[in-house]
Design a protein around this nucleic acid. Structure first.
Lengths: 251, 251
DNA sequence: AGCGTCATATGACGAAGCGTCATTATAAAC
DNA sequence: GTTTATAATGACGCTTCGTCATATGACGCT
């Protein structure tokens, strides 16, 4: 059963198995009910073995977050395959972000929770470094698009602004809308706010604010959204419909 | 000791005393170490009495969040006293938001945490309703400014956009920057992002995106920020300097 | 003053979860 | 077959949560 030496590969594979199981438990129930004891009970391993992989509950959460981000990144890359101008490609990424959130709300909550300082504080260095690296990768993906847009002349970087700041502005605007809307779907006062629409609004305002061409007044971006959903994310659209949480975009 | 009948007023006063104590514990340590048992130990009351006020730890957190928002709202109102054009007033609110976050990081974390769905789920109805009401009040404050700007002609509402959407766009953009930057001050990859600067950038992009006049190219808003900090928030500036976390704005 | 009543206050307790570590199991080496 | 180093186990101690049976004491009544 227990080999004299456990290869790094086997160890990693087991860890991924555990993280995947953790994500399954998360989907089935919710973040609050996800406990180490439950993971132990559902897994083939004992508590001691689990703690060989995760130094704490927070470490597990961070690991889950990292695996989720990896999946999200795949969606981002698919989005960038959209045939369109530089701004439409950015929009495609935004759309993929919203779709991912709607498809996997509990994973989104895990990612949101993983960004609280207490989680990072209790996760091991290895995990935190991977997390930083993944976010840097996501940002690089956007940075590249921005560079291309600057090359083509669609975007002129405002004086004194860094490419990273542009990425951060778009990311944080999306993040804020996501965090506020998804976390309280039932608040009466916020109910008129619709994730799809507000994400689009935020993106449009930031992009127009940057003077990223073509400006919203010169292009039918609502039509772009439709094209993105039809050309790139049709499978996801169908799943969302089946889940009774369709992607609805009314500008 | 225990009066035959406890008046609502006395009950409320005691509750506020407890919430204030909770906030003190939060400032002294951090969110993770804030426990009901600790609150009980530090307070004049027993566990049972505490649970007369707070149905759960989450309920306490939401109560703390509400009290913090009340204080924040006071800062918002002070900010709106800034003598300037409509856009400068909005900037003043943004500045007050950043100042508040820098002055009370642990309170900010409490507010961020209170926005996770698990907290709202475990807080009592009374508390959740107050929370919704307070956020609605904050939004109203902004809505009024937007209405005024529309009246004066500084802002023309984009076709099909609601005033509430404008408020939400500004709020969520600030929220996102706040949540991402404050929650991980030590991430290497995010370290070039500076709360003061990124909040300003986000606000500028959204406001320019809305075409809210005067546009950033037509006005020296960095100078406005300096004026706001000097004219309205000088006391806070001094405190922040003493805390070795000065408000630094380099555009 | 003495007594009964009942709203209020108390803190011991059971349940649940976390993380540890002494013990057990086992593959590989000899 | 014995030894040995490594991996796996799960019982245990500790913390925290939230409850509830019991204690307290202010007030009305006689």
């Amino acid at each position: 059963m227990s080999p004299r030496h456990l290869s790094q590969q086997d160890f990693d594979q087991r860890e991924n198995e555990l993280i995947t199981l953790g994500r399954k438990l998360l989907e089935d129930d919710c973040l609050t009910t996800l406990t180490i004891d439950k993971l132990v009970a559902e897994s083939r391993f004992s508590k001691g073995t689990i703690y060989k992989h995760f130094t704490s509950k927070e470490d597990l959460l961070m690991a889950i977050c990292n695996q989720s981000i990896t999946e999200m990144q795949a969606k981002f890359k698919r989005a960038l395959a959209f045939k369109g101008n530089s701004r439409e490609k950015i929009l495609a990424v935004m759309v993929s972000y919203v779709i991912w959130a709607k498809l996997h709300p509990s994973q989104l909550f895990a990612v949101l929770a993983a960004h609280s300082p207490s989680v990072a504080a209790c996760a091991c260095d290895r995990r935190n470094e991977k997390h930083s690296q993944q976010e840097a990768d996501l940002m690089s993906l956007m940075n590249e698009q921005i560079e291309k847009a600057i090359e083509t002349g669609d975007l002129t970087l405002p004086k004194g602004m860094l490419i990273e700041q542009v990425t951060f502005a778009m990311w944080s605007a999306s993040w804020g809308a996501m965090a506020l809307i998804m976390s309280k779907g039932n608040s009466i006062k916020l109910s008129p706010m619709q994730l799809e629409r507000e994400s689009f609004t935020n993106a449009t305002l930031v992009l127009d604010g940057l003077g990223w061409k073509p400006l919203s007044k010169d292009w039918d971006y609502p039509q772009t959204i439709k094209n993105i959903t039809q050309e790139i994310f049709l499978p996801e659209m169908k799943i969302l419909e089946k889940l009774a949480t369709p992607f609805i975009f009314i500008s």
